[in-house]
């Protein structure tokens, strides 16, 4: 067993884990933060994207022990004081989701994208940046719209 201590959504948490525990397993199984989803085994779908020290990463492709000491933000930690994050609001406003399974990963990816590339995002950039997030329902069109709108609202 290995012990890990990290900050998740502003709270310090510690756990003893089998070293092969993935960050996503720590979040879902130990901390019951089930908003971060697993949709594939091959690091392609992006349903598990969270922020580790401000960087969007696939929590299914990171061992929990690798995140020791890190600051982690998950979809549950995005809304502050009961107020939706502008990107969450934009997804609802623009019908950027259907079944909702890919949505947490999409939103976490989108927020970091805005942090990196600013508030004015064109369609091409958004589509390129969504390379690592798969959605089976929407056909992406409204997701792209939502991210463009959310980016502006994050100003």
């Amino acid at each position: 067993m290995a012990s890990v201590t990290l900050t998740v959504n502003g709270r310090t948490v510690s756990a003893d884990v089998d070293p092969r525990t993935l960050l996503v397993q720590l979040l879902r199984e130990h901390l019951h933060l089930t908003g971060t989803h697993v949709g594939c085994d091959t690091s392609q779908c992006g349903a598990c994207v969270v922020h580790v020290n401000g960087r969007a990463v696939k929590s299914c492709t990171l061992l929990a022990v690798q995140a020791d000491g890190a600051k982690v933000v998950t979809i549950e930690g995005l809304a502050a004081n009961g107020k939706l994050h502008p990107m969450q609001e934009a997804f609802r406003e623009n019908h950027g989701l259907q079944c909702g399974f890919c949505t947490p990963g999409m939103i976490m990816t989108a927020v970091e994208l805005v942090n990196r590339k600013g508030n004015n995002l064109d369609e091409h950039t958004i589509r390129e940046e969504l390379e690592g997030n798969l959605c089976r329902c929407t056909g992406y069109h409204n997701i792209v719209k939502a991210i463009a709108a959310g980016a502006k609202a994050m100003r």
């Binding site: 979809i75 995005l78 989701l97």
Partner: peptide, 20 residues
């Protein structure tokens, strides 16, 4: 606006694998 969206965009949906 869709009623169900609030839980999905906040990570509070409950899919089968989320149930313990």
């Amino acid at each position: 606006r869709r009623t169900e969206d609030r839980r999905f965009i906040t990570g509070r949906g409950q899919y089968t694998d989320d149930i313990r």
